[in-house]
Design a protein around this nucleic acid. Structure first.
Lengths: 279, 279
DNA sequence: GTCGACATGGAATAAATATTCCATAGCGGC
DNA sequence: GCCGCTATGGAATATTTATTCCATGTCGAC
């Protein structure tokens, strides 16, 4: 066979589909089957083997290999890589980003900004997709009927905590920000009927963990805003809200965390003013 | 090793997470790293190799294998099969999900969250489009050579200010957060060679405006992060960074402001460490 | 009907990937 | 400080999976 004209491999899903449409009409039977099956099952490419897809299409593996090459890939693996990379909605190509951060000398500040904007955007989208609505409603329930809402978050969680405290204050909801000023221990301020919102991300601050455990031990409900279900504060939480935030080493965008926090605050405000109006 | 008690391999994602939560606390260092990374990246399991995940977690592949077995799987492949099988249920794309959340109705937390997420996203996109690169570079220039960086922002700008202070601290850059604790006036701390980052939005806090004017009068360069070019601090600023933040209700998302702030901080950190290395 | 060009399937091979095993390092109890 | 345990990293091996190659089949042109 003469070498194909050097068709570049598609580097986006859109390019892939365009190429698929382009070549399909001229394909012989078996390759046509491949094209049809692949077109109808693009979502399986990332998680299947050649053998599985070939079986699904009703062709031998070698036919599928030829198909991949006709599309422009060197083989199946290259095609699969395209789909796997694109699947990682929420954190595409972490390695590239870290490199961008390191190579700031070469890049401009606005390139750096673009990276953080992108990280924030993806964090927000992931939050919308993955938010646990049930947990959110449970959290609101606890906070709406709390006497005093304690808010705790240190280090990188502190901006979130302070924003929550600000929002509660604006809405005339009794809230106390545990900020560690003067190394005072505010934990004695927790009383029956109160509630605690704790925000912490790995590496988890020991103050926050201790406060959460103290609250849980006293029966004060804890709303935990954290990164994973295995966070040390997850076990003590009455409502566990995990935030899928894209993280560059030390710096997380906080976009998703803040969006969740402010939604929570406003929902609590609404619930409370409803109660007040009614009562 | 004696055979483990026959722990059945989790057969759903939920069972997997439950098992993860159960075993994590008793895990030694390396295996804990596996658990943490896996918990934070469950979505990558289906499309990654052992080697990739192990690298992400910062452990050798054999550690990750042990981890899989502790969870109850025969090995990595079995764990991956669970995630690949569950992968098919295509996640709704962002637009669809957003619509679903919004349709939850007026006061619901989900609907609020959808609005705040969308506000944040639009703010970020607007920032990427409209950022004043020249001003950003000027700001970085001033901050990179400042002796001490003062950070001021009150009320709703305070989360941004505190995040900046945190970021600077992480990078060993001398910075002082003017937080108004104890109503002390830190303005006497401004010295020649310092710089000030001031963040304020309408209605502009008088403390911030006063601090900016004081700094400008002494020749201390001011980096202003604000909402419009007619902000009261715009006139005194050496570098004016306006952030097109979309408000929803009474609260601003801060997503764009934080993205800008963290970019600024990292750029300054890079510029400074470059100078140090060179000097 | 024969020839040639292309398509096809399957088996052989190459490559990637998972998995096991073992030597050693670290840590706690004595 | 020594002993025994567990954790660990890396290299060897097994397994799976992708890829190539070739013998055979199919179809159309003459």
């Amino acid at each position: 066979m003469v070498a194909n004209p050097p068709v570049a491999a598609p580097d986006t899903i859109d390019a892939f589909e365009a190429r698929l449409v382009e070549v399909t009409p001229s394909l012989p039977k078996r390759l046509r089957q491949c094209a049809d099956y692949i077109a109808a099952n693009t979502d399986r490419i990332a998680v299947s083997t050649v053998a599985e897809l070939a079986a699904g299409a009703g062709v031998p593996p070698s036919a599928l290999m030829r198909f991949c090459q006709i599309i422009g890939f060197s083989g199946f693996s290259e095609m699969q890589r395209l789909f796997r990379d694109n699947y990682a909605q929420g954190r595409p190509d972490y390695a590239t980003r870290l490199r961008n951060l390191r190579e700031m000398g070469g890049g401009s500040a606005s390139a750096l900004l673009a990276e953080f904007v992108e990280a924030g955007r993806q964090s927000l989208e992931a939050l919308a997709r993955e938010v646990d609505e049930a947990a959110l409603n449970i959290a609101i329930g606890h906070l709406a009927k709390a006497g005093l809402i304690h808010v705790a978050g240190f280090r990188r969680a502190y901006p979130v905590a302070s924003y929550l405290a600000y929002a509660f204050e604006k809405m005339d909801i009794p809230a106390l920000l545990h900020d560690g000023t003067g190394k005072l221990d505010h934990s004695h301020a927790l009383r029956d009927g109160d509630a605690l919102i704790a925000i912490t991300f790995a590496p988890y601050s020991s103050e926050t963990v201790a406060l959460v455990e103290g609250a849980a031990a006293r029966g004060v409900p804890v709303v935990a805003i954290t990164d994973t279900a295995i966070s040390p504060i997850a076990g003590s939480a009455a409502a566990l809200l995990t935030v899928p935030e894209v993280d560059f080493g030390a710096f997380r965008s906080l976009s998703a965390t803040l969006a969740l926090a402010i939604s929570l605050a406003v929902a609590v405000g609404t619930a409370r003013s409803g109660d007040t109006a009614r009562g």
